[in-house]
Amino acid sequence: MKSLKVLNHRLSDSSNQLAILEDDGLHRHASFKARLEALGEFPLRANGVEILQINIGKMCNQVCKHCHVDAGPDRKEIMTIETMRLCLNTLANSAIKTVDLTGGAPEMNPNFRWFVTEIKKLDKHIIVRCNLTIILANKKYHDLPEFFRQNQLEVVSSLPSFSKDRTDRQRGDGVFEDSIKALQMLNEVGYGISKNELQLNLVYNPAGAFLPPSQQALEAEYKQALLKEFGISFNNLYAITNMPISRYLDYLISTGNYDKYMEKLVSAFNPSAVKNVMCRNTISVSWDGFLYDCDFNQMLELPVNTPHTLHLKDFNLSALSTREIVIKQHCYGCTAGAGSSCGGEVTVLS
């Protein structure tokens, strides 16, 4: 399977995605902006910057059907060591506490390990979004669990189901088996066992055109099933809503599910999720050093609304800390039901 970009698909152009999301001016779905206005939450503003989420490249060993990055082995965009140095410089000069490394498969960046050890020297908490199968993909990655442990990384990994069938349908044939092996390897070096250290958190996202069920109930089921079937332990399960952008948008449109899915997101709008959307405390950095409100806005090429600080070279923490967030219709994906972020639900439902 190839990326939309390599296929030269019309959705590889973010302006086409935005035109669809903005309903081609038809206004069939209530506008996200109007919903925020009604709540007195417009403009939505950042409330500091606590997390720097760095996308260090779009290259990935997988080509998942729902991928909002349109990642895959055919993507060549990768962060250079010079841009990594800019990240380190920014981190050294700011009180940002957490660095969230994502991709693609971040481990495929040739400077990944160097970058991690340099960030560690700055005493930051590091999260790595590891797709699990990368650990098995090549001999040179087999020691990743040990590398993660040595650097005390928090590992966040996708496993859309504890059943092989659903996982492979979303992520590709054989992904489930490799993911299980990788989780066992992570457990072996100590991940997912204790409450406080070597955190191993799993991500559930729906394999289809629907919203995630209750995170709490799902976590209990995952824990029971993974332990019983495969002897695997982990810390938390994050239930994440699929964003109607990029390859997932293509899936929704090509299966005739787009309108219904948007209706689901719109009708599940939860006002209490608005306060905790992740863009309020995060800045997302692209492989080439540009700044965005979140990884989704990055993929839609919607830069931060701070004209003088668009790139790491001009990083101005105070301007970014109170910036107005760029919102569009895809933001409904963050406020549906219990809300959704890179850390799962953002509200506690009764």
Binding site: S161, S163, D165, R166, P206, G208, F210, L211, P212, P213, A217, L218, E221
Partner: peptide, 10 residues
């Protein structure tokens, strides 16, 4: 059908 599938039944 949607609800049961969403909740994880095969």
């Amino acid at each position: 059908s949607s609800d049961a599938y969403e909740k994880g039944y095969s």
